[in-house]
Structure formats: C-alpha cells, structure tokens
C-alpha cells in the first residue's frame, strides 16, 4: 500500500519531510509495546502507535520501518521529528484510535 493511501484512509497529517506518497509499505504493526515491535520481523513495515517518545523512532529505525503513524491525535515533539528526519522515516498523525486505524488499513489490503 502506498503511503498516499494510508494518509487518505486515516485522514492523517504529514509531520515531516521524509514522507513520499509513492513509498510502499508491505506490512503494518499496531503496538504500544516497543519490545513486541522488535520481535516483529517484516520488511517495509508501517508502525502505528499511541506511544510518543524517542524510543518509538529508534525502534522503527532498528526495524528498517518506512513510516510511523501516531494515533489518537498524538503529536510528537520536535526531538522526535528530528530523530525521524535523521532516520529517513515518515511521520504521520491521525485522530483515529489504534484499533480503528489498524482495522481500516487491514480491510483495505494491508493485512500482513
């Protein structure tokens, strides 16, 4: 699924310059527990989380994830955005809760 479609489906805001509408994500992980994310082995993945701290970006970077969606209207601070810019990870924010966001993406074909 292209990131452009993720943005459309989740009514998401784009929060940094690493977003590219043609970036392809092949799988997604919805989780607030970073150790569970680290146990999740998929390529070109999207992380959806309600947790907002620098470890979210570091975890996504270690797992070579392409983008992070902060759910429930969470807005990351400058430090987190800077870290994501350094790592080349797109940062999005949606008002939808985690369960809803995952359900929408799953039903639209992002089911790995």
């Amino acid at each position: 699924m292209k990131l452009k479609k993720v943005v459309e489906l989740l009514d998401a805001n784009i929060l940094n310059d690493c977003y590219s509408q043609d970036t392809e994500v092949l799988s997604a992980c919805g989780c607030d527990l970073m150790s569970d994310v680290l146990a999740f082995v998929k390529d070109q993945a999207l992380l959806l989380t309600g947790l907002v701290n620098p470890q979210v970006v570091r975890t996504a970077e270690m797992m070579d994830m392409k983008a992070i969606v902060f759910v429930r209207g969470k807005t990351p601070g400058e430090e987190i955005i800077d870290l994501a810019n350094e790592a080349g990870i797109a940062v999005l924010s949606t008002q939808h809760p985690l369960y809803h966001s995952c359900g929408v993406l799953y039903s639209e074909g992002l089911y790995k």
Binding site: D32, L33, M34, S35, L38, Q55
Partner: peptide
C-alpha cells in the same frame, strides 16, 4: 509506560 519492560528483551 515508555514501551519497554515487557519481558521480551533477553528473548529477543
């Protein structure tokens, strides 16, 4: 609360 301490560190 910071997303760790779930007992997955050493197993991972």
């Amino acid at each position: 609360e910071l997303g760790f301490g779930a007992g997955m560190g050493l197993p991972n």
